[in-house]
Design a protein around this nucleic acid. Structure first.
Lengths: 139, 139
DNA sequence: AAACACCTTAGAGTGTACTCTAAGGCAAGC
DNA sequence: GCTTGCCTTAGAGTACACTCTAAGGTGTTT
């Protein structure tokens, strides 16, 4: 495996981030790239995995600031593992709380859709407001 | 029930939106308010429920634009019920897809935390990278 | 030799949803 | 009579994460 080199255009398609964003992330310290003899960026397989992991973190709602802090800690070596773990745990707890809240809101939205269906099918009395209807599901 | 009137300051605390935001939402057509003899806004119990519902929709990730469209349709009367239902269904599908994605990302984040724990407790071999470790959970 | 892909710095622009200020004014309560 | 809370319009500011342009350049491919 002669460690294939990907230039920014190819890498961009590979990871699904624009070249702009890749340079921006590099500026921000999230990504590193190597350079060939002409100063042109290139990336290797390892970088695909790293960007992939960053995208997992971003996908949980982790913000750039926290991501930067995480990357900084990582660069400081194994002594920061506990701190990194803690940071990720906080992000995880946060994300889970947000999902729980969203699901609660979705429940109401689902009831509203059902209510429309009931009205349309006349299986819900014309006089029953959505607010009254919702009361039926107080659990 | 002499329909208690809430002025914007009190209402703001009640629904958890700043007075600025309430006026902004009114500008945007999401909320209506009534006025007393001096032109001062007031809200009634029904408005609490309406704002509550709006917050449920917002909480699912529905954007202001869609919210505006929804409110506009609502104002057009019963003939738009099918369209409203469709709009809400789209929002619901979207939200559910987003949650599913977030949960997928959260899974990886969870594994990373476990991996840190394994490293710290030395139950994961020093030589095993996170990427290798992750392979164990390919389901 | 032209087209193409890349490089740089610095800064402007985009979208979303607020959030606040300025500058004027009215009405009720202490 | 002063403070407090409200009113208006219009516009500026904030936060986040990009996204793009300008204006110059290098090196490779057709």
């Amino acid at each position: 495996m002669a460690d294939k080199r990907y230039r920014i255009g190819e890498f961009s398609k590979l990871v699904g981030l624009s070249a702009y964003t890749l340079r921006y992330y590099e500026d921000q310290g999230l990504i590193l790239s190597q350079r060939d003899d002409n100063g042109v960026r290139y990336y290797v397989a390892e970088d695909i995995r790293w960007v992939g992991f960053i995208l997992h973190l971003k996908g949980t709602g982790m913000q750039l600031n926290d991501l930067k802090r995480y990357v900084k800690l990582r660069a400081e070596g194994d002594t920061t593992i506990a701190e990194r773990r803690q940071l990720l745990q906080r992000v995880k707890d946060n994300a889970e709380a947000e999902i729980a809240e969203q699901q609660m809101h979705l429940k109401v939205l689902g009831h509203k859709i059902d209510w429309y269906d009931g009205k349309t099918a006349h299986t819900i009395d014309d006089s029953e407001s959505f607010h009254d209807y919702l009361q039926r599901f107080q659990d």
